[in-house]
């Protein structure tokens, strides 16, 4: 705790809205994939200061508000579609989250490998592991008939789909009647978006027996040695692979057995019991590689959330203005 507080006092930051800068940067930089970024109208994301509506007489403000609302909603939907569609095809009108195939390369001292990520599933994996004890090279790959679903991406996709559905299930000429209605809609959308983003930014904390039982161990050919556990997860824009090397504890060992709880990454020395055998983690290898579209997705999440919040703030200002009574 102390070192964190100490580090706080370092004057690190000058701009509070680094996310905004990210987006500016995203907008300004050369679009890498055609059709992804040139669809975003920068004007949509640049929104007038909050004090602006107060200067307008109520009637005018009302019409402007509905125009603004239409524009803002369109913009949010568009952003979400970009978020989904930017990665590839839009499938039968329903956006598909991350359907593109990505080849990802890992490289670390002990672990090297190639992974193929298709949508939310890892469809190919080729992993080379150098055993630290005898420098023996172990190679294992996914079986051809198996895919490993990355639950985090699937959940994020479902959340985004729900948000898009919430925004688009009204007919095109639907008129919002109250500001409260929009606020509720924005709350619901933001809830889904926040959850989608959190799903990507917070990997699940698994205990070692859960990893052992996850079925990932059964996906490889040749079969994984019994003293190796692997786990995949998404952390922010990175796909992480952790390889645990285990050594079984003797049943009559004098070592004090304390099973480890749930964690994203277990440390060497963590112990657990699985199918009546006690193990201790002897080595941990963690490798990660950046998934490019995840990076973009996170930025889109941030921008959409900001847009929603700005819309909410606007409406709050408006309703405060309209409800204000003179005494």
């Amino acid at each position: 705790m102390h070192f964190i507080i100490k580090s706080l006092t370092r004057p690190v930051l000058d701009s509070p809205s680094c996310c905004e800068n990210n987006h500016q940067e995203l907008l300004s930089r050369e679009p890498t994939e055609p059709g992804l970024l040139d669809q975003i109208n920068p004007a949509w994301t640049r929104i007038a200061p909050a004090s602006y509506p107060l200067l307008v007489p109520p009637k005018l403000a009302e019409t402007r508000c509905s125009q603004y609302l239409q524009m803002a909603l369109k913009c949010i939907v568009h952003l979400l579609h970009c978020l989904c569609a930017g990665q590839g095809v839009v499938d039968s009108g329903v956006p598909c989250f991350a359907p593109l195939i990505h080849c990802l390369y890992f490289s670390a001292d002990q672990v090297k490998g190639i992974l193929t990520l298709q949508g939310d599933a890892l469809c190919q994996a080729d992993i080379n592991l150098k055993m630290p004890r005898n420098n023996q090279l172990v190679h294992f790959a996914f079986r051809d008939d198996k895919q490993w679903k990355l639950q985090q991406i699937q959940d994020a996709r479902n959340h985004v789909n729900q948000a898009v559905y919430l925004l688009t299930n009204r007919s095109a000429n639907y008129q919002f009647k109250t500001g409260c209605e929009v606020l509720k809609l924005m709350d619901a959308v933001m809830l889904q978006l926040t959850r989608a983003r959190n799903r990507l930014t917070t990997p699940a904390t698994l205990s070692l027996p859960e990893i052992a039982a996850s079925g990932l161990t059964k996906m490889f050919t040749p079969a994984l040695p019994s003293d190796i556990l692997v786990n995949f997860y998404i952390n922010l824009n990175k796909l992480c692979l952790t390889v645990y090397q285990l050594h079984p504890l003797q049943p009559n060992s004098t070592k004090n057995f304390r099973p480890a709880g749930g964690s994203i990454l277990h440390n060497p020395g963590a112990m657990f019991e699985y199918s009546n055998q006690r193990y201790e983690v002897s080595h941990v290898h963690k490798v990660e590689c950046v998934v490019p579209w995840l990076n973009d997705a996170l930025v889109f999440f941030t921008v959409s959330l900001q847009l929603c919040q700005q819309l909410k703030d606007k409406i709050a200002v408006f309703s405060g203005y309209w409800n204000y009574r003179l005494y």
């Binding site: 706080l8 006092t9 370092r10 690190v12 930051l13 000058d14 509070p16 809205s17 996310c19 930014t201």
Partner: peptide
């Protein structure tokens, strides 16, 4: 003054 802005972890 704003010392720091952080998000996430």
């Amino acid at each position: 003054s704003l010392e720091r802005h952080e998000s996430g972890e």
